[in-house]
Each structure stands twice: as structure tokens, then as C-alpha cells.
Nucleic acid binder design. Sequence first.
DNA 1: GCCAACGTTGGC
DNA 2: GCCAACGTTGGC
Length: 135
Amino acid sequence: MGKWLVKSDPETYSFDDLKRDGRTVWDGVRNAQAHIHLRAMKAGDPVMVYHSNTDKAVMGLAEVVRAAYPDSTDKAGKSVCVDLAYKSTAAKPATLAAMKAEPKLAEIGLIRQSRLSVMPVTEEQWKVLMGMMKG
DNA sequence: GCCAACGTTGGC
DNA sequence: GCCAACGTTGGC
């Protein structure tokens, strides 16, 4: 079972929107590398949701409830999406600044490849992030 | 198939 | 508002 991190611009679709909706189609991803990660997701996999731009922090947890399938918003038919369900809100969001200050997170995709919107998180990175979010 | 130009993302 | 990173496009 993989663990994941997805990014969203909160002005487009925020973690609060996911909490309100309970479940959503995570579509609109157009990057080939991100698609590789989406295809590797399995139902039940945990996912951290990061807000770019304004918050620059992991806001909470979601869960994959449907594995990759064709993204209907892509007329070319090349994109895939998954369904995510709201799981829990972080007591304290894990900020990008805090992640950069943590040597154990030096290799995390969020920092190393800032434009990638879907990425795997290792077990160790996951534990460090969970610790940060306990507050 | 290469590469310059251009567009987009996202941190600062 | 600026700029670095990087993906995409289009001319050759």
C-alpha cells in the first residue's frame, strides 16, 4: 500500500471543500509524471492534501476510494483521475517552512520537485509529517 | 529529433 | 510582482 501527497490550489478546490463534500473526483491533472503516480494509487491508500500558494501546508488526510480511471475533463482521453474521500483534519498544518527545516524531509518530492502535483511519500517521511500535524 | 520560445506553476 | 523550474509547442 502506497502513501501519497496531492497538491491543490485552495482557491480552486480546498481541503475544506473536500470536508464539506465528503468525497470528490480528483481530476484535472495533466502532468505525465503525476499520472504515473495516480495510476499507482489503490483504494484504501492514505493521502495528504497540501495547499499551495496561500497556506503552503498539509491541511489533513484523505483516502483513495476509487483507483485511477479516465478523466472525463480531458477530451483527448489521455488523463486519469481518482476519487478521494475526506478523512481527518490536521490539528496543526505541516507548513512548507517546517518541512524545509526538517532534515528528514530533505528528499520529499514537494521540495525537490516543486511543480509536481501528485507524488509518493515514503514511510519515514509520512511519520515525520504525521508528527508535525499533531501540534 | 533537436532546441528555442513560450506558458504555467508556485515560492518568495 | 518577480523569477526559477520545468513542461509544451512548433520551426527546422
